[in-house]
Amino acid sequence: MKALTANTLREGEVVFWNKGAWKLRFGEAELFEDDAVAEAAALAAVNPTQIVEPYLIDVEAAEDGFAPVAFRERVRALGPQNHPQHGKQAEGGHDIEVIQHAHGVARSAGRHNLIKLKK
């Protein structure tokens, strides 16, 4: 499963795509079963005056919900661990708790279409 994410241009805020609109919470993200549909959405979502570098992330089923696979993406969906009062996690809620309690090893392979550093 995939979701589409980006940061807003003006604020740098983390956002998630849902059927033509950008949402503030991971819990509101549209989940794509079909990679081709996800990639089409990523192309359609490009809007250089609204957001910066949209990309797809891997999502997996977690207990009672869904969570990004990559640790990095969980951090983006939650906020920094050293300041629980900052970022998305501050508001709490079911989707946040699901990510906070997601089991298993997060794989960084969950990022797609990122600029790759030359090795």
Binding site: L9, R10, P48, T49
Partner: peptide
């Protein structure tokens, strides 16, 4: 940049030279 007259690719090195990064949660 906000008006879309320059692209992110063009803007990025300019903002970096002014100390501005786009990080995980914000600039």
């Amino acid at each position: 940049r906000l008006a879309g007259e320059i692209t992110e690719d063009q803007f990025k090195p300019l903002r970096l030279m002014n100390g501005l990064y786009l990080q995980l949660h914000a600039y």
